[in-house]
Design a protein around this nucleic acid. Structure first.
Lengths: 183, 183
DNA sequence: TTAAAGTTTCAGAATTTTCTGAAAGTATTA
DNA sequence: TAATACTTTCAGAAAATTCTGAAACTTTAA
């Protein structure tokens, strides 16, 4: 694959976004390249196309590997490793969510839990503890909910997303039905 | 409020998390302090408690203000500005989501849209464009959906979250009902 | 109008993150 | 076993981000 202005702008942007999405520029660019390339690419291809060092590519691929976002393939009579993006777009989104949950939610939840186990030493701490409790409960709810959403099939998730705020109506409806059933 | 080990560990952690959540360490710490403080704090209080410069506090508060996460109050016969966290925990979570959407999704969606309007110059670009289209559609779905969720009342959202993956059953049920109604 | 009490800005220092490239490591083949 | 073709690591260089503090600015009240 050759770098064209279109491909370059996509790759660049993914690089910039990378840092917002939890990985660094290079990692973002490498992944972008792999996603839009029909053929697997070698580490050298990637280094050349992005104009970055071979070592940097190796580290980036290592990270993408740990996120399970790339896979390695080989070719007959060629010792090089070739890299390919892995799974569907949904899989990729799932991985990113999961990884972010691990980085952004889990450590916080664990600290908040610890704090709540402490005895408040004075009224300030008692107030703080109460607020911390609220934050903990909210984060825990969100975490559990997103986890359960991820266990839903892509089709169900799609239905749910298409429903948009209409999901409110479905909930009302369910309540009514449950009430009737209790008669 | 005095710094105690409990309060300090909470504040420190929020600082570290800050960078993952889209704001820098100082901003995270300032916000943490304001959230768990029952009384509003002056900029000097904050600088002293966190051991950082007055200028840094000013910049941090400015950013929190732009996120609409703090509000300024005053006291009779006192010229100082006092700062307070704003809104409920839900409001805070909403703000963070919204801000992140603005930073992480909107620019990407807009770039992807632009790319899709271009004419593919060769087969590589045609393939790339197709993948980019998939990514665009997924991101757009997620964006619209999260927006519509945010417009739901906190109670409805809570019901929905409590439902967890049980939401799948409710969807099935709704389908069945719709089918019957069509008879 | 002026002094006092406060806030904001911003250039450069300090710190953190990322990147390079040479050296070390690991297959594979002859 | 040695030569070859490739990958990985990591110390230090480069770049990006964050923080400080002095100076400029704003508001209030006497």
């Amino acid at each position: 694959m050759r770098m064209t202005p279109m491909i370059e702008s996509f790759v660049c942007h993914f690089g910039e976004m990378g840092s917002r999405w939890g990985f660094n520029r290079t990692v973002g660019q490498i992944y972008a390249l792999l996603v839009i390339s029909e053929q697997p690419l070698s580490a050298n291809d990637i280094a050349d196309m992005l104009g970055i060092s071979r070592g940097n590519v190796s580290m980036g691929l290592k990270e993408l590997h740990s996120w399970q976002l790339v896979q390695t393939t080989h070719r007959q009579g060629d010792r090089k490793d070739y890299y390919q993006s892995r799974g569907s777009i949904w899989d990729m989104a799932n991985r990113v969510f999961e990884e972010r949950r691990k980085r952004e939610m889990d450590p916080t939840l664990s600290l908040l839990r610890d704090i709540m186990l402490d005895e408040a030493a004075n009224p300030d701490e008692a107030f703080a503890q109460q607020r911390i409790g609220e934050i903990h409960d909210l984060l825990e709810n969100i975490t559990e909910w997103t986890q359960s959403l991820q266990s839903l099939s892509p089709e169900k998730l799609n239905t749910l997303m298409k429903l948009g705020s209409g999901v409110g109506k479905v909930l009302d409806f369910k309540d009514k039905f449950m009430a009737k059933k209790a008669d």
